[in-house]
């Protein structure tokens, strides 16, 4: 399954009924040096579009919105321990959390890599 993207600059990688969520390289470049990451608690039931995580640069705090509804089944402790991972590897090692997808129809309308590239051009 390819990576999907949202207009809010998150990416989702789908594996069965679990989505791994992160912010895009474009988003980290806009934020600048990331100094703090706060992730949702394990087991939290996320509703699509609610604030799920926080990524903070020196200057500002930015919410990361849940791109999809479902239960948080894993969080990336490596990125809370070393927030600079978001700047160095937003698309992979700095994944933020994994969600057990409640409703796959919420994936409809998300962008593929080409569409997202046009979105940020």
């Amino acid at each position: 399954m390819p990576t999907l993207y949202t207009a809010d600059h998150e990416w989702l990688r789908i594996d069965g009924d679990v989505a791994t969520v992160g912010i895009t390289d474009y988003a980290q470049s806009q934020l600048g040096d990331v100094v703090f990451v706060e992730l949702p608690k394990l087991g939290r039931q996320l509703k699509k579009a609610e604030a799920a995580a926080v990524v903070e640069s020196v200057k500002a705090a930015s919410d990361v919105y849940a791109p999809i509804s479902g239960e948080v089944v894993e969080v990336n402790d490596a990125v809370t321990g070393d927030p600079t991972l978001v700047n160095s590897d937003a698309a992979d090692k700095a994944w933020l959390f994994k969600v057990k997808i409640a409703d796959k129809s919420e994936l409809d309308g998300m962008m593929d890599a080409d569409a997202y590239e046009k979105h940020t051009a």
Partner: peptide, 9 residues
Amino acid sequence: VQYPMGVLK
């Protein structure tokens, strides 16, 4: 607000 060096550096 910043240059390519970034706020931290």
